[in-house]
Each structure stands twice: as structure tokens, then as C-alpha cells.
Design a protein around this nucleic acid. Sequence first.
DNA 1: TAAATATACGTAGTTAACTACATATATTTG
DNA 2: CAAATATATGTAGTTAACTACGTATATTTA
Lengths: 161, 161
Amino acid sequence: MNVIDEAGILAISTRLQRLSDRIRKDGLEIYREMGISFEPKWFPVIYVLHKKNVLSVVEIANEIGYTHPSTITLLKELEKEKIIRSKKDKADERKRLLQLSAKGQQLIDQMGPAWEVITAATADLIDTQNNLMQAILEVEEQLKMKSFLQRALVLIKERQD
Amino acid sequence: MNVIDEAGILAISTRLQRLSDRIRKDGLEIYREMGISFEPKWFPVIYVLHKKNVLSVVEIANEIGYTHPSTITLLKELEKEKIIRSKKDKADERKRLLQLSAKGQQLIDQMGPAWEVITAATADLIDTQNNLMQAILEVEEQLKMKSFLQRALVLIKERQD
DNA sequence: TAAATATACGTAGTTAACTACATATATTTG
DNA sequence: CAAATATATGTAGTTAACTACGTATATTTA
């Protein structure tokens, strides 16, 4: 990956994705290694239901930052696995409310130690001069202030003058 | 995305992907804004052929860090767009050699300014206390020394003792 | 309060990467 | 030098996200 490495900042999106992928793949292995039948892609949904108890489809989607169709696909899988269950909201018939099942609760208990391991291993991995997690947080702050596109548009405008 | 944000380091893979996606989408807009008909996903291939002139399929795949089937799909698209062309390697009949076409070269010339803008806008975006590009480089170095999985396995082993 | 709009959920199809497998040519080895 | 192995390319099918669009219910407004 010589050339992409040389391209540096210009290929930052590709690099971020590559890194994400690598970490996710190893994440799957870690769960396996610890005897937990769990897919990393389920993490956001499981985690949010663990923290918030009962949420609707769109609420979950917003919390985890996915679109609702993607979320629905995940929810279907998790319901099939009997990790979560759903019921209609009586107050608002449009809504479907999701929560962890007993099996899901058990899974959470099992996952506690795995999460500790993953957290510690990640902390170990990113403990460098420029901390990756901090960098992500800082860039997300920057994006809140001004999007990447807006920054570029300013530069394009400057060039035209 | 409150909860995922709170999960912090535990959801780092999700965060990296989200960031990559956001930058890529704005990247597409930047090219459009500058009147260049170009998709960000083509970048790695175009860039490597710009730098190295003539390469085989697998050489390109290795350079850009994708699998060869993914690379073949990209090459097909680019050939259809007449941005690159290919010929058999006479010395090794298994190989197909790729290079930029005249149209591809023109595209490169057009893209120079866009790359400058993207580079500058990215530099602006990630110029925070913990520099994202540096953090990526450092983590990649860490991974070379010891994979994420290996780090986790050490911790799992410690727990068992 | 009927009509217009907004919200919640769902389905269908797309995208951009992947893995697994197949085939052709080249290289190495018994 | 024939057989085994390695390399290069290609195809088929999968995955995990997406966008676009449709329907049902709730809310707002003329």
C-alpha cells in the first residue's frame, strides 16, 4: 500500500476505512476467542438498548447514527436471534418499541468482560503521541463547526479571486 | 448518536467508518463543485497509475490495499470510462498491464487543483491537538508491531491466570 | 374538521467492499 | 522434464451499509 500511504492526507478516507475494517475483524475474533456468539455489527444496537432499555426503531437509528433501513435490518437479525423483542407502542400506533430479551440480558452479562478486554486492548493500541480517539473527537468537533465541504468551498472561492 | 459517542473507545471502529464516509461524501461534492466528473472511489487506482505508469492488476491491488476482485471491478469501470487502457504483458501472458489513457492523463491534469483543495481542506479539518493523520500513522505502526487481536489475547490470558 | 404535512416504519434495489472458488500460465522440484 | 506448486486473473455470490420510494398513523393548519 505504498502509494496510498504516500498520498497521505489525500487518501485519508481510504485509510480510515481500512483501519476501521481491521479493528472490526479482530473484534469479531476477540468475541469468538472469549466464547461469545456475537457479531461486532450488532454492537451499536445492543449497547444502546442496554443503556436506554426501550426505544423505537427511529430512536435507535438516531442514537447509533445509522439510517433507519439499516437499523431495521439489524433489528430483524437480532429479533431472529431472540436477543431483542418488540411490541407496538399503545400511545402511538406507528411506533414499534424494542428492548432486550432475557437472552439479550444474559448476552450483555457475558459481554461485560469482553468489552473490558476490547476497551483495554484498544487503549493500548491507540496510546501514541497523537491519540486516535481524541483526534476523532476533535475532528468531529471541527465538523460540527464547519463541514469538510464548506472548508473546501472557501478555498475554491479564494482561488477564483 | 449520543450513546455511541458515550461508548467511546469501545465503538471506535464504528466511529472511524462514520468519519471516513462523511469525508468521502463531501469529497464527491468537491469534485462536482470543481466541475470534475470523478468518483472518489476511483482515486486509489488513478493515483497509483499516475505515480507508477504501468502496473498489473495484482500490483495495483497491492499498492492500494484492496483485494484483487475489488480492484478488477474498479478497473472495469475505469476502462469503460476510457480513463485507463490495458494490454497483455508479452513477457508473462498471465498478466494484464494497465495504464492511464490520454483521457486519463487529462483527468489527472484537471484534478491537480482539486487535490490541492482537498489536501488543504483536510489539513485544515484535522489540524487539532491530536492530529488525525499522525494518529493513523502511529496506530498503523503499532499494528505492525502487534495486532489488535494479539493485544487482546494477552489481556485474556492475564485474566485467566 | 378536512386537507396538508410530518413522522414512523417498511420494502426494494444499489453500492463498494469482501470471500470463495475456478482457470490459465509460469516456476520450482523430484 | 513431468508433476506439483505458485502466481495472475477472473467470476459468482455475500455483506453491511446506503438511497429512493411507499404506506400508515399522527399532528398541524386553513
